[in-house]
Design a binder for these strands. Structure first.
Lengths: 159, 159
DNA sequence: TCCTATTAGTCTAGTTACTTGACCATTATG
DNA sequence: CATAATGGTCAAGTAACTAGACTAATAGGA
């Protein structure tokens, strides 16, 4: 099934990492493009990823960091940006005076609804392209990988 | 099979895009880390991707651009960097005076050998984690996606 | 042959998506 | 109450892109 390329390149590129990269980029491009067409000009790749980690009633910043597997500073900057765009707001955590609860604003919630619809639409497209079984196999394998994979660093700093 | 998260977040994040992103990041992190440990300090994510597109006897720059699905400027900059590190060299294309053939230097070829070994090692690990069938299903689905997916822009400029 | 469009590549400038290090405030532990 | 761990911020830097404007060579006609 490996596509032979026309020239002298052989199957150098046919490794799983390349395929994953392409697939990830493709998905995000489709998603972001659709969101922008729907009027959410502020929408970008990383913001999409972050937004998916915020629950309807808000989520502590620390949890978002934990789950995304990137540095806390990266997460902070993303939230800063989305706060400036009036998509997210940071509220004090009643249980921990250090903490902040991150929550959608109204504008953010509207975007969230569109995002959900678009995500579903893309998934339907994928399902159609791959067939139900292959799609489920894909998801299944990815879930298995994610569950085992070494967690991202987390930006451990000084101290 | 969807993992319920402990708190109030539900399964917001369990969409295919997120899974793809995680998997892609995980793979690349593993790859780059291994290469650096093997003494290739100059190794990075995007460079890894690019390097995989260069055939043993060289590949025209234009083909690399075509295949990677990112802008020609991005590819150029990556090659610039690798040229400065003495990993790649640009030779004139005998068939087209506009063109350039991109080829590994000796140092580049040594790196390539290590890279191939590491890629195989990672793949073996994945195969072990997922089981043979699930791994093949994953690859299969990704190939199907990549073959259909809309090609990346290509940095069409003025004109 | 010239005329035009296309292709290959470069230079410049900007953005996005991260990372690291240093630091402060709060909470948790012995 | 000292100390460590956790939650967050500020500042600076790097990696991986994108877009626009431009030049040189080629390709396809009229």
């Amino acid at each position: 099934m490996v596509k032979r390329l026309d020239e002298n390149s052989g199957d150098l590129i046919d490794h799983i990492g390349w395929r994953l990269w392409q697939a990830s980029r493709g998905w995000h491009k489709e998603f972001v493009d659709a969101m922008r067409e729907a009027g959410h000009e502020w929408f970008t790749d990383a913001r999409a990823t972050l937004l998916a980690h915020i629950a309807p009633h808000g989520t502590p910043q620390s949890r978002i960091i934990e789950r995304m597997g990137i540095s806390k500073q990266a997460v902070q900057q993303l939230i800063d940006g989305l706060e400036a765009e009036d998509i997210l707001q940071r509220l004090p955590d009643p249980n921990d005076r250090r903490g902040r609860i991150v929550r959608h604003t109204e504008k953010g919630q509207a975007a969230l609804r569109d995002a959900d619809a678009i995500k579903r639409r893309i998934e339907v497209g994928y399902r159609k392209q791959l067939g139900k079984e292959r799609f489920e196999a894909l998801r299944n394998a990815l879930v298995a990988l994610n569950d085992i994979a070494p967690k991202g660093n987390g930006g451990k700093t000084s101290g």
